[in-house]
Amino acid sequence: MPRFVSVGECMIEMSGGEDGLYRLGYAGDTLNTAWYARACLGEEWDVDYVTALGDDMYSEQMADFFDENGIGIGYIQQVENRRPGLYMIHQKDGDRHFTYWRGQSAAKFMAEDPEALYEAFEGADIAYFSGISLAILAPRARGRLMKAIHLAKEGGARVAFDPNERPALWTSPAVMGSTICAAAILADVVLPTFPDEKALFGDASPEAVAERYLSWGAEEVVVKNGAEPAFVASRESQGWVAPRPGAKSVDPTGAGDSFNGAYLAARAEGATPLEAAAEAHSLAAIVIGHKGALVPHEKLAD
Rank of each mutant, 00 (worst) to 15 (best):
A34E: 02
W240E: 08
R158K: 14
A210K: 13
R140A: 15
F194G: 03
A255M: 01
T33G: 09
A301E: 14
M176R: 05
M57F: 13
F259K: 04
G226E: 03
D251G: 07
A34R: 03
A152C: 10
K147T: 15
E43D: 14
R102H: 05
P245H: 10
I126Q: 06
A285L: 03
P139N: 09
L151Y: 10
A182N: 13
A293K: 00
A230G: 12
Y49C: 00
L86N: 03
G239C: 07
P163M: 06
L169F: 11
M88H: 08
E275H: 08
L24D: 06
P84Y: 02
G131L: 00
K108Q: 14
G202Q: 08
I149C: 03
Y128E: 02
K198Y: 11
A227L: 11
W216E: 12
F98G: 05
Y36R: 08
M88C: 12
S282L: 14
A262I: 09
Y213L: 04
A210V: 08
G74V: 07
L169G: 06
A107L: 03
E60D: 15
Q104P: 12
S6T: 09
K299H: 14
G256T: 06
E236R: 15
A184I: 01
P139M: 01
L53T: 10
V287R: 03
G42T: 10
S105V: 02
A39P: 02
W101D: 05
D113K: 12
S105D: 07
I73L: 09
G226Y: 06
L191I: 13
R267L: 14
P229D: 11
L264R: 05
I76Q: 12
I71E: 02
P139E: 09
R235K: 15
V222D: 04
R235Y: 08
P296N: 07
G42M: 07
I136C: 03
A284T: 09
Y26Q: 01
G177S: 14
D64Q: 15
A285R: 03
K108R: 15
A174I: 10
D257T: 06
N32G: 06
S178P: 05
V295R: 02
E115F: 09
M57S: 15
